[in-house]
């Protein structure tokens, strides 16, 4: 088995403008995903929107500049993740396909193993 991180990238305005019903649907979707894949899921979280993000950039001289906002400004921002266990990429993809992400999509990345 291997671990993969499923990164959820979506347009934040989708959530900002979503009705209560849509929110409910999405939360139920995540609950259903969690129950169905309980054995595979090793962790996961939703993130607050990028307006709450703080970015630290190395100044190359041992210090950091601290600024407001996400590290990269993109239309679709990282909004949450699941850490999962899967036998191979095909299995990881089939799990990722079940993650609710109607305002964007998902990225699947293998976790690096240090031996």
């Amino acid at each position: 088995m291997s671990q993969y991180l499923i990164l959820i990238y979506e347009d934040e305005s989708g959530y900002a403008n979503a009705s209560q019903d849509v929110w409910k649907e999405i939360l139920e979707g995540h609950n259903a995903f969690g129950e169905k894949n309980a054995d595979a899921i090793a962790g996961g979280n939703a993130l607050q929107p990028t307006s709450t993000a703080t970015t630290l950039r190395s100044d190359g001289a041992g210090g950091f500049s601290v600024t407001d906002g996400p590290f990269v400004e993109t239309k679709e921002a990282l909004g949450g993740y699941y850490l999962i266990e899967a036998a191979d990429l095909d299995e990881a993809i089939s799990i990722a396909k079940q993650v609710p992400a109607r305002f964007g999509g998902l990225e699947v990345r293998p976790i690096m193993v240090f031996s």
């Binding site: 291997s2 036998a87 191979d88 990429l89 095909d90 990881a92 699947v108 293998p110």
Partner: peptide, 10 residues
């Protein structure tokens, strides 16, 4: 190899 794309008939 690293993303573990399987060597398998789908």
């Amino acid at each position: 190899a690293t993303a573990r794309i399987p060597y398998r008939v789908p």
